[in-house]
Amino acid sequence: MSSIQFKLNNHPVAVNVDGQTPLLWVLRDTLGLTGTKYGCGVLQCGACTVHIDDEPTRSCQLAIETVAGKRVTTIEGLAEHRSHPIQQAWIAEQVPQCGYCQSGQIMAAAALLAKNPSPSDRDIELAMRGNLCRCGTYRRIRRAIRRAASASGAAASPTAQNRGQ
């Protein structure tokens, strides 16, 4: 066991755990950040998705020692007061049902939009097909991503903003 340091939601942290412990369990059990979820433990469901240096990453099989020196963003650190366009769109489209997978869905969708502000339907499918939802909220997720994309597009374009007024 040794001290492993990384940046979590823009704050430096150090944890003393077995370096093989998956990031997921360090977040949930050591640090008490329970927004990131355990769903399968074998990279099949995406409920544990976080951002590592802005890349959407499954945390359930990511040894904590490989995270040393990196930036980790979890659902708790995505934005203040649910202000991320994806979170806003999730509320507007009333996406969640049980909600358990939604942290992972939101982190995957936020990473998609960060890289690709106007994704095609196929882009959305490729980015989201690794995230399972047993409640079947997929159609609303698709609508919410489109909504967030067009909202961000509108914000970036003065013309679109004027049209909106």
Binding site: R28, T34, K37, R82, Q94, G99, I106
Partner: peptide, 21 residues
């Protein structure tokens, strides 16, 4: 009517059984 449980389900604060600490 928008669901009352949804805001907490988009920021990780919703408390499931597995989140009890």
């Amino acid at each position: 009517i928008p669901r009352l449980d949804i805001p907490a389900k988009v920021d990780g604060s919703a408390g499931y059984g597995l989140d009890v600490r």
